[in-house]
């Protein structure tokens, strides 16, 4: 038990950036836009967030700058894909190349700078509850934010009218257009949201997870986030489970190594990937359920008939 609570806390930090980025991508994909540039947006969010804290000393400025950095890059994506009808897959991958380069360029002076990390906010009274207190009520702002965001995205997509419209746009842009909804604007907003969330994921990496800036520090988490949206079969609460499952197994295998299991480390490192595949296979056996959730127009360009 003594080990369990700190281990779960580690899982929370490992899962939080995945959760942010995957939630953002989920909303973008639900509107029918596939943005493979998550990795690039995370990195730009990370460098902007860290630079802002370095320049102003304010954690709030860092979080805001991370959000803005990711969003700024998603504007490029939105203009190209929605304005110029460019291929979504190719533009997303180009966005990653661009984001890796741009973040490295911006961050040249930040390598070697230290930051003590986002302040932890202990909720009064609640954080005193044994076991549950430290587990749930002693985190930094972005961790609370990720819980809230998971719920908000769930509520938005499942319960709100705007979410219904967004889903309609993603499922049939022609029908949505015919009903008078501004398809492109809605998609642009979804893309911006995706960029902002990826930016927050980046800010979490450079301000809380490991508070420093190093080139390419996201180390492939953007790709995992993309996979988690698929894993979740486009459901927010499953994104939550997926992020924690992936983070959890990653941490579990590290603990298993400390205890000594006698299995090659490479095999241990495979576990999160294999487990994700296995769980998805189990989930997907029911064909109809998945089809109902996948946005039908994903990746398809939209242009209103003249």
């Amino acid at each position: 038990m003594e080990i369990l609570i700190p281990a779960i806390l580690t899982v929370i930090t490992a899962a939080t950036p995945l959760l942010y980025a995957a939630l953002g991508e989920l909303v973008a994909e639900k509107s029918g836009v596939l943005n493979l540039g998550v990795e690039g947006m995370i990195l730009l969010g990370a460098v902007c967030g860290f630079a802002a804290v370095y320049l102003t000393g304010s954690a709030a400025a860092g979080i805001f700058a991370g959000l803005a950095g990711g969003m700024a890059l998603s504007v490029v994506f939105g203009v190209l894909v929605l304005g110029f009808q460019a291929s979504q897959v190719a533009t997303g991958l180009a966005l990653t190349i661009f984001g890796i380069g741009l973040s490295a360029l911006l961050g040249q002076e930040l390598v070697g700078v230290a930051y003590q990390g986002l302040p932890k906010i202990s909720l009064p009274l609640l954080s005193k509850i044994p076991a549950l207190g430290p587990l749930l009520f002693r985190h930094d702002f972005l961790v609370y934010g990720s819980f809230a965001m998971a719920f908000a995205v769930y509520w938005f997509l499942a319960r709100s009218r705007a979410g219904l419209v967004l889903r309609a746009v993603g499922d049939s842009h022609d029908a949505a257009h015919a009903m008078g909804y501004p398809v492109v604007r809605i998609r642009f907003a979804a893309v911006l949201f995706g960029g902002g969330m990826a930016g927050l994921a980046g800010a979490y990496l450079s301000l809380a997870y490991s508070p420093l800036w190093i080139e390419n520090m996201s180390a492939g988490r953007g790709w995992i986030a993309l996979a988690l949206v698929v894993f979740a079969t486009w459901r927010p609460w499953r994104v939550f489970i997926g992020a924690y499952l992936f983070g959890g197994i990653t941490i579990l295998q590290l603990h298993a190594q400390v205890l000594g299991v006698g299995v090659p480390a490479q095999v241990m490192s495979m576990l999160p990937y294999l487990a994700t595949i296995a769980v998805l296979v189990l989930i997907s056996r029911d064909r109809n359920k998945i089809k109902l959730n996948a946005p039908a127009c994903i990746g398809k360009p939209f242009h209103p008939a003249a």
Binding site: I3, T13, T250
Partner: peptide, 15 residues
Amino acid sequence: DPGKEGDAAKALIDQ
């Protein structure tokens, strides 16, 4: 991989 290196450090300390 700063994140994973940090996680490894946490796992060690937790044990």
